Simulated assay, not measured.
Amino acid sequence: MIELPESVTLANQLTKAIKGKRIERVIAGKSPHRFAFFAGEPEHYGVLLRGKTAGESRSYGGHVEIELEDMRLDFNDGVNLRFLAPGQAEPKRHQLYLAFDDGSALVGSVQMYGALSAFRAGTNDNPYYLAAREKASPLEDGFDVDYFRSLLHSVDRKKISAKAFLATEQRIPGLGNGVLQDILWTARIHPKKKAGDFSGQETAELYMAIKNVLRDMAEKGGRDTEKDLYGNPGGYRTILSKNNAAMVCPECGGGIKKEAYLGGSIYYCPACQKM
């Protein structure tokens, strides 16, 4: 899934790979997918995008947006983006294919669910997109201690868990269930612990973990559980994920637990992340 570290990585790679290239051919919706969402009808994407020249690509939370003159092309959630060099064959299955004037191409395919949205600049009123554009990013100076405290004070801390606080309601766009695991482990906070039970030290540790872990993930090209624009895994080695085959905590040597919680899996060390 595209979360903040992956969106930063993809945006940087896209700018280097396609900026200045003109779109010559567009195929949208080739492989029907129940949970591939388009802005409008995919059959109109050719008219909207053909002939446009790619500008900068930018990251907003878990969104990756390509500037195409007066148009924008936005990807989020479970969209896999791949750049194809000239001569590489078009995959048999995909939800979006853009062929450029130099023979290269960009392919977008959806796994579980994802949005591939083409729209005129300034016209996207999707609340998730707007939240990603408007809210402070943990990678920016605007996400300071006071801002973080304002997020904590905006919720019912007696009822909301650490996972729910961080990864729901778009409070911190781009921070999802994937990056959540290592952030909470670094702060030594159990995913189910109520925000109202955080000590002052835990609150400070959580703030710093959000800033530092996400920065580390982004600087290393995303997590090793995800792929970049060229199909390579990210350089950040996740601590709590399916990639930790031994399921051993690197801090205490104890076993890592995995269980279902709030619509997804959580990983935690019972010894280091106590309730």
Score class of each variant (00 low, 15 high):
M217C: 12
L175W: 07
N80E: 14
H44R: 12
I2C: 06
F38C: 03
A11P: 01
H33Q: 05
P42E: 00
H63W: 14
G231R: 07
Q201G: 04
A204R: 12
V8P: 02
E90V: 09
S265V: 13
P127V: 10
A271D: 13
K194D: 05
N76R: 11
K16G: 06
V155Y: 05
N76I: 09
R223A: 14
I2T: 07
N80A: 13
S109I: 08
A260Q: 11
E24C: 11
N12R: 14
S161C: 01
G40N: 04
G114C: 05
K257F: 08
H94C: 00
L175M: 13
T123Q: 09
L73M: 04
I172A: 02
A36D: 05
V248C: 09
M217D: 10
G29P: 05
E69Q: 11
R223V: 03
A136M: 09
K257M: 10
S241G: 06
E65Y: 06
I189Y: 03
L98I: 06
L151Q: 10
K193V: 09
E6G: 07
E134A: 14
E43D: 12
L98R: 03
A121S: 14
A209S: 07
G254C: 03
D102W: 12
L229N: 00
G178E: 11
K257N: 12
A54G: 03
E3Y: 01
K52M: 09
L151V: 03
A99C: 11
T168L: 10
C269I: 01
P32K: 13
T123W: 07
Q181D: 13
Y236I: 01
L229E: 05
V79Q: 05
A246T: 14
Y236V: 00
E134G: 05
E205L: 04
L175T: 02
R149I: 11
T238H: 02
L214C: 01
A118K: 02
A89F: 07
Y261L: 15
Y147Q: 04
R133N: 03
R215I: 04
I18G: 00
N243Y: 11
L180H: 08
V248H: 02
M217H: 00
W185Y: 14
V47T: 15
Y45H: 04
R50Y: 06
E226Q: 07
G61K: 00
M217T: 02
V179W: 09
A54Q: 12
Y230C: 08
L84A: 09
V145P: 09
E56P: 01
K158N: 15
V110C: 03
D74H: 09
L206N: 00
G55Y: 06
L240N: 00
